[in-house]
Structures are given as C-alpha cells and as structure tokens.
Simulated assay, not measured.
Amino acid sequence: MSTAKAYLTVRGIDIDVVYKDIKNLHIGVYPPMGRVRVAAPERFDDDQVRLAIIQRLSWIRRQRDKLRSAERQSEREMVTGESHFVWGLRRRLTVVERPGRAHLEIDASRLVLYTPVDTSTEKRRDYLDRWYRAQLRQAIPDLIAKWERELGVSVPQWTIRRMKTKWGSCNRETRHLWFNVELAKKHPDCLEYIVGHEMMHYFERHHGERFTALMDRHLPDWRQRRDLLNGAPLGHESWL
C-alpha cells in the first residue's frame, strides 16, 4: 500500500495527513494532548481534506477539549502527605530520611520513600522515576509473552522511556517497542492495552478499519481500557 504524508493547519489546529489506498477519509484525535491525524484516500487533494476537516471541526475541538481537560496532578514536591498514583491507585507518600541507600516500597496504602537527609526534590523525583521504571520492567515481560503467544509473533527488543505525546510506539521495521514510563501510574489493564496495541502494529501500520478489526478480535474490551487510560489523571511533569 502506497502512502504519502502532508501537514496542514486548519483554524489553528495542526493536522497530520496520510494519503493511502483507502475508500473513505478517517479523522482521529489522540491522547494525551489531542494530536489530530487524518487518513485520506489517495484521490483526495489537500483542499478536499481541508474541507472535510472544517466540516468535522466542532467534533475535533470537543475531542481535544475532553483530552486536555482531563485531571492532572499538580507538580510533585516529593514530601510526606502528597499523593502519587501506582497501578491506578492513589497512594499517600511518606518520606523517611535516614542514612543509607535510597529506595521506595509499598506499605499498605502508603508509598514510602527512604532517602538520605537533605536529598533535593529533583533527586527524590529521580528516585521515583527509577522505581516506576522498575515496576514496568517487572510487569511488561509477562504481558509481551502473553501477546506473543496470542499473535504468533516475537518482540526482539523493548524500551521504557518518558514520552510527551504517546503512551507507546512501534517500529515495524525493527519490531522495537517503546513504552511510556507514565504507564506505571495507570491501572494494569491500561498497560496490557498498550502492549497489545503496539504489537498489533506488526500487522497494520495505521489506525484504520483493519487495525480496529484486529483489536476487536484479540482484545474485545480495548475501548473500555483505552477510556480508562485516557480518563486517568495525567502527570504534571510529562503532559504539560
């Protein structure tokens, strides 16, 4: 399937356009900040795409407003009493200053940070970031193994990183997957949704009808998981 890309700005909104061999035009608005992407038939030109966007402009703006108005955490100061999300649950942070190696652990409903005295706020955030990454490194391999069996594919490499506009991504040529460290804050069902979603791109590059059919077949409740993911509070440091 041949494709060509274009970038349009319509009424102040930047639009990614992909022209390909399809019958109908599709418009998508994607989290976390409302990126707009259009898949258009090859027979369309930029003016036709622009007109289609204008006709759907009110819907596009509603979707973007919904995503951007999602609850966001205030900037974390890493002090006792503030809340942090871990696997979809809000936990109260307790900071314990004492000599020795810094580490975090779950204690009942609390998230406890053990840290040397006078550790800076930035360093405490770094400890938390490393801990979130460790949580994902423990959870992701089993999910990938499950989906490798489900889809009959193998994942040669995957990486956790901080991403500002995506929950995950897939390089179809190398089959390398990337996962946003923020996923450690979300419900485990959200992480499985992203793992399955990115691995589904091995079969279909774009989010068109074929991709939707694959998701429906292999993860029938993916829409509920997507809504759970996008309805959860967003981290201040990643999404603003």
Results as ranks from 00 to 15, higher is better:
Thr3Tyr: 11
Lys5Phe: 14
Lys5Val: 11
Val10Gln: 09
Gly12His: 07
Asp14Trp: 00
Lys23Trp: 09
Leu25Asp: 09
His26Trp: 12
Pro32Gln: 06
Gly34Gln: 00
Gly34Ile: 01
Val38Leu: 01
Ala40Phe: 06
Arg43Val: 10
Asp45Tyr: 00
Leu51Phe: 11
Ile53Glu: 01
Ile54Phe: 09
Ser58Gln: 11
Ser58Met: 05
Ser58Trp: 02
Trp59Asn: 12
Arg61Asn: 07
Gln63Leu: 08
Gln63Met: 12
Glu71Met: 06
Ser74Asn: 14
Thr80Trp: 12
Glu82Ser: 04
His84Pro: 11
His84Ala: 07
Trp87Phe: 09
Gly88Ser: 13
Thr94Pro: 00
Val95Thr: 02
Pro99Ser: 15
Ala102Glu: 14
Ala102Val: 12
Glu105Ser: 09
Ala108Glu: 15
Arg110Asn: 11
Leu111Asp: 07
Leu113Asp: 00
Tyr114Trp: 08
Tyr114Arg: 06
Thr119Asp: 03
Ser120Arg: 10
Thr121Pro: 05
Glu122Trp: 02
Arg124Thr: 05
Arg125Val: 05
Arg125Met: 04
Leu128Lys: 09
Trp131Pro: 00
Tyr132Met: 01
Arg133Lys: 14
Arg133Met: 10
Leu136Gly: 05
Gln138Asp: 13
Ala139Tyr: 02
Ile140His: 00
Pro141Gly: 01
Asp142His: 12
Ile144Tyr: 01
Ile144Asn: 02
Ala145Phe: 11
Val153Gly: 04
Ser154Cys: 04
Gln157Phe: 13
Lys166Met: 08
Asn171Val: 08
Thr174Leu: 10
His176Lys: 15
Trp178Gly: 02
Ala184Leu: 01
Ala184Cys: 04
His187Ile: 09
Asp189Gly: 12
Tyr193Trp: 03
Tyr193Thr: 05
His197Cys: 01
His201Gly: 14
His201Tyr: 14
Leu214Met: 14
Asp216Val: 09
Leu219Ser: 09
Asp221Arg: 14
Trp222Pro: 08
Arg225Phe: 00
Leu229Trp: 04
Gly231Gln: 03
Ala232Glu: 04
Ala232Arg: 02
Pro233Ile: 01
Gly235Pro: 02
Glu237Gln: 12
Trp239His: 07
